[in-house]
């Protein structure tokens, strides 16, 4: 250490370790990462002492803003999860999550990318699945909101592709479309938050398929019946129609019914084109 402060690189490592510590500024100063660069007793050699606040209090201003900023960012991405958990528990979830998965992106919009899987193992076991499903729905809605605007496969083009390909038809999902299988209670939680009501506890079992799509840049949601839900999920996963149909139902729905569903989904903007999506891992 030089007479006045630390070299720039060491100073930055030290200050970051202090202000992002989940235990607060005092714990941050005593943390191993911080002490490696500066023993707490030498704080005055780095941060000047003057005025109404001591150096610890000055660092504390930065340290206190970090949790506020991360909680606020994740609350705006996960309003239903925040409502479901309540202020205190949501704050605790965010603190633990951000400590495990700090932001590495230029945008706070990416901070919550791994919150659904984190929520699946966080907190009391009871209710974990529901919390994770609410988070998955909200994450998917954010992705649909931000997805690129591309040309879509409309119903006539889809009918033509179906006529020429038959059951070997495959479809490429539009970027601004998603389908998820979730607990029915998760849908109820989202509805309740939208309507500003309290969520009923759902006794329904099993999973429902929920489609998320975008209209005029607003994300909308539709819950599908079991057979069309499974069929659309299988198509979105890239399976050809024949295989998707046998996954969806033991007894095959009639061709007219299937083409009606396909027309309905293309009207939601589900498909970008017929064919096979390029495998992103093949490009590497």
């Amino acid at each position: 250490m030089t007479a006045a402060g630390l070299p720039l690189a060491e100073f930055q490592e030290w200050m970051q370790a202090v202000i992002v510590h989940p235990g607060g500024v005092d714990a941050g100063l005593r943390s191993r990462a911080a002490r490696r660069r500066l023993p707490p007793s030498r704080l005055g050699a780095v941060v000047r002492a003057y005025g109404a606040l001591c150096p610890v209090e000055r660092l504390g201003i930065y340290a206190s803003m970090y949790p506020l900023r991360t909680v606020e960012a994740l609350r705006s991405d996960y309003p239903a999860l925040a409502t479901l958990l309540g202020e205190r528990r949501f704050g605790a979830l965010v603190r633990e999550y951000v400590a495990a998965h700090p932001s590495t992106s230029f945008t706070l919009a990416r901070l919550g990318d791994r919150l659904p899987s984190f929520a699946a193992t966080w907190g009391p076991e009871r209710g974990r699945g529901l919390r994770a499903d609410v988070a998955r729905l909200e994450r998917a809605a954010a992705a649909v909101f931000d997805a690129a605007d591309v040309a879509l496969l409309d119903a006539p083009a889809l009918a033509a592709a179906l006529a020429s390909e038959g059951e070997s038809l495959r479809l490429v999902t539009a970027p601004a479309f998603a389908i998820l299988a979730v607990r029915p209670g998760a849908v109820a939680v989202l509805d309740a938050v939208l309507e500003d009501a309290s969520a009923p506890t759902s006794a329904e079992r099993g999973l429902v398929h929920v489609a998320l799509y975008r209209r005029d840049f607003t994300v909308l949601r539709r819950t599908l019946d079991p057979v069309p839900g499974r069929l659309l999920a299988a198509l979105v996963s890239g399976l050809p129609l024949a295989e998707a149909l046998s996954r969806a139902a033991r007894r095959r729905p009639g061709a007219r019914i299937v083409s009606g569903w396909l027309a309905e989904w293309s009207a939601l903007g589900a498909f970008a084109r017929a064919g096979v999506a390029p495998d992103p891992s093949a490009a590497r």
Partner: peptide, 9 residues
């Protein structure tokens, strides 16, 4: 931020 992290401050 440093070490690949962003404190967004």
């Amino acid at each position: 931020g440093v070490a690949g992290r962003n404190t967004h401050d």
